[in-house]
Design a protein around this nucleic acid. Sequence first.
DNA 1: TTTGAAACTTTTATGTA
DNA 2: TACATAAAAGTTTCAAA
Lengths: 158, 158
Amino acid sequence: MDSLDRKIIAALRVNGRATYADLGRSVGLSASSVHERVGKLEAAGVITGYHAVVNPSAVGLGVTALVGIQPTDTAEDDDVAEALSQLDEVESCYAVAGDEAFVVKVRVSTVDDLERALSRLRRIAGVARTRTTVVLSTRFEGRANNASLDSPSVNSGA
Amino acid sequence: MDSLDRKIIAALRVNGRATYADLGRSVGLSASSVHERVGKLEAAGVITGYHAVVNPSAVGLGVTALVGIQPTDTAEDDDVAEALSQLDEVESCYAVAGDEAFVVKVRVSTVDDLERALSRLRRIAGVARTRTTVVLSTRFEGRANNASLDSPSVNSGA
DNA sequence: TTTGAAACTTTTATGTA
DNA sequence: TACATAAAAGTTTCAAA
């Protein structure tokens, strides 16, 4: 990964639909070179995908909550995570340090749906308690950290 | 928004670089019709952008933490949020209900960097205390909720 | 690794139903 | 709206450097 790769990545984080020709113009390479580099970045697992971002309210998901999951004494983390992944409302799932095993992000339409989702979460085997933090507004989300792209990365743990 | 729009959105969430021709094939519409619909979805603010997703470790951001921000009595939320947005390490910022004003997601290279980031957070005017939850592993993140796309959305709060 | 050229595909504007 | 068409643009492959 050199500085050109980092520039290409930064550009694709801003606009995931940028054409190779566009990218080439902005980094000073031919479209075919960019194509080659992007292919390698994808193959190396540096770029893991491209996704359209949708306004959650516009698709009827106006309610967001962060939920800490406290496990029972005998809970198997992997089983709990698997069960969490089965629930459509759970958008993200982080295994965390502390007395909670996971923190998940839940998105639903209404507070009624939130209530139902929480009761579903609590019924998962291995879940002892949940602690819910309701999101009042999303100030920003999923922003690129460009600090990491300005300087060569030491850690290539792809 | 009809069922075709929802299918197009779902497809673009899975693959943000799908061509209009691809999308047309998968929803049974011509490329030009898809182009027209996607343009409208973008203009209406339903689709807010397209982004490449990068493996954080591969760009040297292997340490993630969720940090609750407790405000001082006199803190102005908007000022705190603005200050949070100035920090590169803060990837997402949610205003929340409860005794914390915000929960933020922080991404850095090392625990040393995390320590520095937290001390930076605590120095923000209006921040009384922080509560940090270290992420041990990301089981999944930013997954599409397809439940919202199966049925017509009532809430079009774009 | 980069490039330009060639073959192929997609995009995008226009006209029509 | 949706579609077909066609010109412009982009993608992708490949041989050469």
